[in-house]
């Protein structure tokens, strides 16, 4: 865990109420995909947990949705502004658990953390199918980015305005997609549906209101088959088999 003051390079809308923020600064505490950072927001007491979308030696990219006052303050940041964040939080996706063919499922802004994961899977030479679910065509985002790194990308929208009409699980039902392991991030009902529809092993990234974000306040605990677990420290990524829905 490391506190870093970043400089905003870019903070632009990616979809309605959804922003991509590229930050320059020390990323040495960020190890791999699945982690999150705790962003300090002026005028707010607690930090906001946001997943790592992409990261290299000098830059960190976050994709976040404006859901309240805190993220609204963040969306007003301009290039050159400073952003303080605790970095190196949470566990990570387990790329080694995927034998050959990965299925990545993202719901809305839940697509964000899957991008760095996809890059890691790609580096290991694994095949990838990505299914992204949104409410409507105007919300579709990140599809091109996933395609550029060689993923087979499918879209689902609730109103049918882009891709398959329905949920990400409807794409699975209608198309013959080969996979032997899955990774999912998105709203809880989606994750629950994914975990019951898919019979291969896999893992999901959870979201919870957090206090410290570093495992010592026990504010974000969930009950699992292995007892209480902290989403911020023991997660946010949990194996499917561990979760109780």
């Amino acid at each position: 865990m490391k506190e870093v003051t970043f400089t905003v390079l870019e903070n632009s809308p990616l979809a309605p109420r959804t922003f991509r923020m590229k930050l320059a600064g020390d990323t040495s505490a960020i190890r791999c995909s699945g982690e999150f950072v705790q962003v300090a927001v002026e005028g707010k007491f607690l930090r906001r947990p946001i997943s790592v979308h992409d990261c290299d030696w000098e830059t960190l990219t976050l994709v976040y949705k404006v859901v309240g006052e805190g993220t609204a303050v963040l969306s007003a940041k301009r290039p050159g502004d400073r952003v303080r964040a605790l970095t190196g939080l949470g566990n990570s996706f387990d790329v080694d658990s995927c034998p050959h063919k990965a299925l990545l499922l993202g719901g809305g802004v839940g697509a964000a953390p899957l991008y760095l994961l996809a890059k890691e899977l790609c580096a290991q030479g694994k095949e990838m199918t990505v299914i992204l679910g949104f409410n409507t065509a105007s919300e579709v985002m990140l599809a091109d980015e996933f395609e550029q790194i060689g993923a087979d990308v499918h879209i689902a929208t609730m109103d049918g305005s882009a891709g398959t009409r329905g949920f990400v699980t409807d794409v699975l039902r209608l198309k013959n997609i080969p996979y032997d392991y899955f990774y999912a991030c998105g709203p809880k009902p989606m994750l629950k549906a994914v975990c019951s529809a898919i019979h291969t092993p896999g893992e999901v990234s959870l979201e919870e209101r957090m206090g410290c974000g570093a495992g010592f306040c026990y504010g974000c605990s969930i009950q699992t088959k292995n007892g209480p677990r902290r989403v911020c420290k023991d997660g946010p990524v949990f194996k499917k088999e561990e979760l109780i829905w």
Binding site: F45, E208, R209, G219, C220, S221
Partner: peptide, 15 residues
Amino acid sequence: TPRIADCPAGMLNAV
């Protein structure tokens, strides 16, 4: 959960 709520100048906890 939720066990935590942000507030002006502080927070609520119900851990």
